[in-house]
Every structure is written in C-alpha cells, then in structure tokens.
Design a protein around this nucleic acid. Structure first.
Lengths: 224, 224
DNA sequence: TTAAATTCGATAGTATTACTATTATATTTG
DNA sequence: CAAATATAATAGTAATACTATCGAATTTAA
C-alpha cells in the first residue's frame, strides 16, 4: 500500500512518517479496520493500542490526534484515487469517455476488493463515505487546509475539472459540479443503506453511476 | 419560535419537551448561539450551563446527550423549512415555478435575518450546513432514524419530490436529485468560504441557486 | 385545602477520553 | 564501543460525557 506506489502526503499530517517503521504501518492498517468497524466517534488510540499491542502514547508519537490520523487516511485515499484516475484515463482520446471513466471511478471505488500491503481499500472507501465530511466540517478547517490536509482531494477535483474544461471550455462550474457529484455519490451509498427515503435505489447495481453521469453531461453540454 | 407556529418534533428527540419550560427554551436559544460560535465538537453542556446559569445536569434532564440536542435543532430546522415551503409555493399554479421557488428556498435559507422567539434562524442555518452531516453519518443512524430524528428532513424531501413528479411523472430519481441538491448546496456555501478550489464562486450572489436550478431542470426534463 | 404525587433543578459524584511529561530501552553513528 | 539519537513504555492530568441522588417547588386529587 504505502511502499509499492508512493502516494505523497503532506508532512504536516503526521509527527513521524508512519510508512517509515513497522509500528507506523500497523497503526495505519489496524486504524482502517477499527474505524470501519466501530466508527470514528468510538475510535480511540487506546482501543487501537490494544489491537496492535502498543500503548496509546506510542501512537501519539506518530499522530498528534485521532483527527490527524483520519485526515492522513483520507488524504491517502485521494492520492490513491488520483493514481487510479491516471490509469483509468490513460491512452483514451475522447474527453467525454475519460469523464465517464472518472465518474464511474468515483461512484464504484468501494466495490472492488483491492488490497495494498494489507490495507483493505474498500474499507477505506467506507471510511471516506462516512467520515470525510467530519474531517473538513470543523472550525479548524482553515488551519488543516494550510497544512495540506485536502491537497490530494483538491488535486483530484482539479484533474477531473480539466477534463470537463476540455469538453466545454465555456462551462463555468467544473469544480462545483465535481464536488457535488463526489459528495453526492458518497451520500447516496449511505442513504441507500440507512435512509432509503432520501434516495431512489434501483434494481441495477450501477444506478448511482448512471445518475451522476447523466447529471454531469447534461449540465456540461448546455452552458448556463 | 417554538410557540407561535407549532413545529412537530418526535417525542424521542428529548426527555422533557424543551418548549414546555423557561429553562428548556433558554437551552434551545443559547445552544444555537453557542454551537454556531464554537462548533459542535467544542460545544459541551457544561459551557452551555455557564451561559444559561444552570448546572449541566439540568440540561441532561431535557436531552440525554449533546447529539440528541443537535438532532432536535436540525429536526426543528426542517420542520421550519417545510412551513416556509408551504408559504413559498402556495397559490402558484405552475409546478416548474414551484420547484424554482423550492430550490431558491434551499439555497438561500441562511440569507434572511429572521428571528423566531429570540432564535436566530440564520445561525441555525449555519449549524445545519456545518453539523447536520454529523448527525446522520454515525453508527447510530438506524436507531436515530427509528426515533424519528430525520422525519422532518424526509418530509421536506418528499414534498419537493412530489413537485418534481408533477413536472415529469416518469422521472426516476426525484429524492436522489433533491438530497444531492440540498447537501450539495450546503457544502458549496462552506467551500466558498473555506475551500474555494472545490467550488466556483461567482460575482453574483445567487450563483449557487442558479447552478442547482439549472442542474435540476436539465436532469428532470430529459428522462434517463 | 391539604396530603400525596410528581416535576424540577442542584450537588456531587464516576468512567472514559484525549493528551502529555518523563523515563527506560533499543538502535545508530562516529 | 561510547555517545548520540530514535523509539517505546509508564504514569500520569485535565476535561468530557454522563449518572445517581436529594431536597424544593409545583401540580394533582380527595
């Protein structure tokens, strides 16, 4: 996960680089498992310490708070998504088709059973769906932003936005459309499971993908 | 606020009805002020107690947790929005025009300086933008849902969805479109202030309204 | 109208959480 | 191999979220 492809993470998102030691790596891997299992609210360094058989103070040497650890994991996720996007859109001429691939990637990233160095990507995806809003909807958002917490997310949005600009250079809202699609797609997955009246679940597995593809292309094609 | 128009709140969202006593009402009013000021993470019953000059245990007699209090406030907000929607769409023949009004209501609800019995609605709107995702993105969402925590929100979505069904009875995604618009519009306000690279802020004040109106009508008109 | 029942708010707690200061133990380096 | 450095463990603390209990005030019912 953290070695084979090198995903850049801001140095301000950790105290000691967790990829640089055995303990650091087991913190990351077990944190994904535990947050996925019990949710970020109930997640504590003490509980994580029991699982990896280290005292909580050792974890504090790597991350100064559980919020910083969550931010690290989400930043890693978007770095990984950027990497996936490059692969998914490589060697494809048509900007339209590249955008379709990008939206499909956003809406189905959790479906695949991918493991990188023991980290379960689909569990990380679940964490991103349920917890990522909490990482930016805080009073500390400006400070976190300065520390590069959302760099990889913004980078991903910028990359897909540039595809939209290729399709329609006059379209004024590429970033707005994308953040709407990304956050919307994540919420629909959650709603389908827990609050079905807030979505319209369909028989076909890819209805979320189809909905947001349709939304994107209709919005882009005819300029407001 | 809590008397003049009677907004129905599930009985499971409080221990003692806060509208039934002086203390209860001051809990609600001061909670809006304090959560808006310091954010929900740093909000505690102890701090609220200092402001209203009552011990925290007295607040616990009304709400069993600070989460329950937040859920109450958000539920009240959506009850109020339902009331506003009825007013905004009353006596208007055209379903298209009613939908336009509904979207404008969603995207501009925080702009007006309305006070109801001392409660600042625009501060409540800010709270809904920053904190409402936290009220449902938890492991307890199913329990909260059973207790009617999201009843008013779902009701609001259902009401606007029925307008969409009037415009195009064959449209398959009215609820999905609406939750996308509502949560999206809230996020864009937040992004414009804190993470501008995730949106496309424009000179005109109503660009968010225009964007989502355009998105809605394009999506509804041509069925997928 | 007065005793019983109930509501209400205050006091004084507890377990847990998030985090830190300090010390002990490896590991690396010159 | 000794000094410097990195790493981890111990033992804390302040604050948080919440509870059990008690006395006073209010309401209800005979």
């Amino acid at each position: 996960m953290l070695l084979k492809i090198n995903i850049p993470i801001s140095e301000k998102l950790f105290l000691i680089d967790p990829t640089s030691s055995r303990l650091g790596k087991s913190i990351l891997l077990s944190a994904i498992e535990l947050i996925d299992e019990i949710g970020f609210e109930k997640f504590t360094f003490k509980k994580l310490g029991v699982i990896i058989d280290s005292p909580e103070a050792s974890i504090y040497r790597y991350f100064k708070s559980k919020n910083q650890l969550l931010t690290y994991l989400i930043s890693w996720y978007w770095g990984w998504m950027e990497y996936r996007l490059l692969f998914e859109t490589a060697n494809i001429e048509s900007a339209e088709y590249r955008l379709q691939r990008a939206i499909a990637l956003i809406t189905t990233a959790g479906d695949e059973k991918i493991e990188m160095d023991g980290a379960d990507i689909s569990k990380l995806h679940t964490i991103v769906i349920s917890e990522s809003a909490k990482s930016f909807l805080t009073k500390d958002v400006d400070k976190a932003n300065k520390e590069g917490a959302f760099y990889n997310y913004k980078q991903f949005v910028a990359m897909v936005a540039s595809i939209i600009k290729e399709i329609n250079p006059r379209y004024k809202y590429p970033n707005m459309l994308l953040s709407t699609i990304i956050e919307g797609a994540h919420l629909q997955v959650f709603f389908a499971e827990h609050l079905p009246m807030l979505t319209n679940k369909q028989a076909s597995a890819d209805y979320i993908t189809e909905f947001y593809k349709d939304l994107a292309f209709k919005s882009i094609k005819n300029t407001i």
